[in-house]
């Protein structure tokens, strides 16, 4: 069932790109782990948006199927990541990601 009034593929992709870049910028500039997690969510969401827009454009069901998987992945990832954040805070009593540099070469 085609919808005529859609804003166009390029617009969707650009929105997705903007959101992704914002998320990336946030990841790079924030030191708080919680904020970094949120930024990861932004990036994941931007990628999911891209799937849905492309799927809608081509009339393909795969786009939304991928969205479902992305949401699944995000849920699992957040669960693990939050557990790690809790442990990190428990051990170091801080949420500063820069303190977590024990793997330096």
């Amino acid at each position: 069932m085609p919808i005529e009034t859609a804003p166009g593929l390029e617009a969707g992709i650009m929105l997705s790109s903007i959101l992704f870049c914002l998320g990336l910028a946030g990841l790079m500039m924030r030191r708080n782990v919680i904020f970094m997690l949120m930024c990861v969510e932004i990036c994941t969401n931007a990628a999911a948006l891209m799937f849905v827009v492309a799927g809608a454009h081509w009339g393909n069901v795969d786009g939304q199927v991928m969205f479902v998987f992305v949401v699944t992945l995000a849920a699992a990832e957040v669960a693990i990541a939050l557990a790690l954040v809790l442990q990190f805070y428990h051990r170091k009593h801080t949420v500063d990601i820069d303190q977590l540099n024990e793997l330096r070469g």
């Binding site: 069932m1 085609p2 593929l9 790109s17 809608a56 009339g59 393909n60 069901v61």
Partner: peptide, 22 residues
Amino acid sequence: LAQLILLVSSGKISSNQTFHYI
């Protein structure tokens, strides 16, 4: 972002702007 936009806009604008309800 500038690179992405550049890449996206450099492609051919598809004439078919219809979307499908899924």
